[in-house]
Design a protein around this nucleic acid. Structure first.
Length: 452
RNA sequence: GCGACCGUAGCUCAGGGGUAGAGCACCUGGUUGUGAUCCAGGACGUCGCGGGUUCAAAUCCCGUCGGUCGCCCCA
């Protein structure tokens, strides 16, 4: 192996986070955390890997091919890297038993792993924000978790022009299917059909719809319902009347509408009964957030899953929540130009960049000055190059996005240094002994991040 | 897991059997100096990796790893 220059590539579907990427990731995570906390949710986490059975118990053995599973060399217990957080959450809630406070409002930002073929917006390892509200049955809980999601996205600079929350409701959709003539025991099949409508040729869709017991007219209606998307600022009863169906079938959406309105969310939302999501989980409201132009995969998905905790051996607890991945969101933020003007603009900005003109007194002062300013809590840098060319050092200071340059020049022996504001471009002389008080005061006036 | 296309300098790419190019970026020093311009110099890469064909492979063939798109799936 001596002299080997073999280049390792990162494993398929994983990412390296260089400083600029890490800054982006922290930017997104802090928006997530901040929105969660503002809405009164507490942060939790669990193990990165769980017993394999935790995932097969709900989804069946078929799920295993989508997992990274393993066991210890010589061990018999099967484990899996967590592909989602919800089972862990349910397990944690179940383990609290009856002492679980109601409501319980939890959020987490786990790393998740799926052994799928990677594609744009979909990797084998990604970070996902999970928000869950347990113990509240009413639509106020659904509206509240939607509010948290929208709040974080707004915090990242996205508006109702950029993102849309598409909302459906299992009960409402089932009511409409029933009104069209789908029998009780075929409702689940109707959901599956609606979910797959975009991948099916029109004739096949019609054929399968007929098999559900629909007549020609109802098939057209079903297609129309699945594809109708109207702004949530319109009352849900419009959907029913549009298709000449009973108003009662959309009662659940009406109740949700009231709660969304109170939270100022209606401008962000659309009623979209084509949203189905995983059948195994959801019991009521289901929703997804997409970019408004529909170029990317879903940014987030969530809804109500009242049997969740029970499914994992806990008490019967109503629950709703959502997951939001960092990959699609990152792509959208980049496309919308919301990650700063330059690659490094989300990195922490140095408060001070110290420059020496190369004279002995100045050079001797540089490191001690940096040390004392750092003890004050300031972010301090200086060049590590040999050059003492002031222009080049200033260039380095500005490419590091430093806010101030402290220049140790000819007047250093007289106790005077130059402070240059790199944003404003102006500079002034400051007595060296005043610097510890002067700098924090001056910095307090300005922004701390370049993008703000 | 299946199918298609792709992989050349840090980045964007050109080349297409005869031992590698451009622009930008980068690095060092100078201009006695203030983020620019300028000057001088530097490194630019086993052409993803491995094997095969050939006198000769970045180029053709096979495999593999990675990327993109579609299927599957999306808990």
């Amino acid at each position: 192996m001596a002299g080997s220059t073999h280049v390792f590539q990162a494993p398929k579907g994983t990412r390296d986070f260089h400083p600029e990427d890490m800054a982006t990731r922290r930017h997104i995570e802090s928006a997530w955390r901040s929105a969660s906390i503002r809405h009164g949710f507490d942060e939790i986490d669990g193990p990165t890997f769980e017993h394999l059975e935790l995932y097969t118990v709900k989804s069946g053995d078929g799920i295993v091919s989508e997992l990274f599973s393993f066991n210890r060399s010589g061990g018999e217990t099967d484990y899996a890297l967590r592909p989602e957080f919800t089972p862990t959450l349910a397990r944690m809630a179940a383990s609290k038993g009856r002492s679980l406070s109601m409501p319980t409002k939890w959020f987490a930002m786990p790393d998740l792993f799926r052994a799928e073929r990677p594609q744009r917006g979909r990797l084998r390892e990604h970070r996902q924000w999970n928000v869950d509200l347990l113990g509240v049955t009413g639509p106020e809980a659904d509206a509240e978790v939607i509010a948290v999601a929208v709040s974080a996205l707004r915090g990242l600079g996205l508006s109702a022009e950029d993102i849309r929350v598409r909302i459906s409701h299992r009960g409402a959709a089932a009511g409409l299917f029933a009104a069209l003539g789908v029998s009780e025991d075929r409702i689940a099949d109707a959901f599956t059909l609606v979910d797959r409508r975009d991948k099916l040729p029109k004739e096949v869709f019609a054929q399968q719809a007929k098999e559900l017991g629909l007549d020609d007219d109802a098939v057209v209606q079903l297609d129309a319902i699945a594809n109708s998307r109207i702004p949530a600022t319109c009352p849900p009863s419009d959907i029913a009347s549009q298709h000449s169906l009973p108003i009662e079938s959309v009662a659940d959406l009406e109740a949700l509408s009231v709660e969304l309105e109170q939270r100022g969310l209606l401008p962000f939302c659309d009623w979209d009964l084509g949203i189905v999501r995983g059948l195994a989980y959801y019991t009521g409201t289901v929703w997804e957030i997409h970019d408004a132009k529909g170029t990317f995969r879903a940014i987030a998905g969530g809804g109500r899953y009242d049997h969740l905790v029970e499914l994992f051996g806990g008490p019967s607890v109503p629950a709703c929540g959502f997951g939001m991945g960092d990959v699609v969101l990152g792509l959208l933020l980049q496309e919308r130009n919301l990650l700063g003007d330059t690659p490094g603009s989300l990195l922490p900005r140095p408060d001070v960049f110290i420059i020496s003109n190369g004279d002995d007194p100045a050079d001797r002062m540089l490191v001690p000055l940096a040390t004392s300013l750092r003890e004050l809590g300031l972010h301090v840098r200086h060049t590590w190059k040999a050059t003492r060319n002031i222009g080049k050092q200033l260039k380095e200071a500005s490419s590091a996005h430093a806010r101030l340059a402290v220049i140790l020049g000819d007047q250093v022996s007289g106790g005077l240094i130059v402070v240059k504001d790199l944003d404003a471009g102006d500079q002034c002389d400051v007595p060296l002994r005043d610097l510890p008080a002067w700098l924090p005061r001056h910095l307090a006036g300005g922004p701390t991040d370049r993008h703000t």
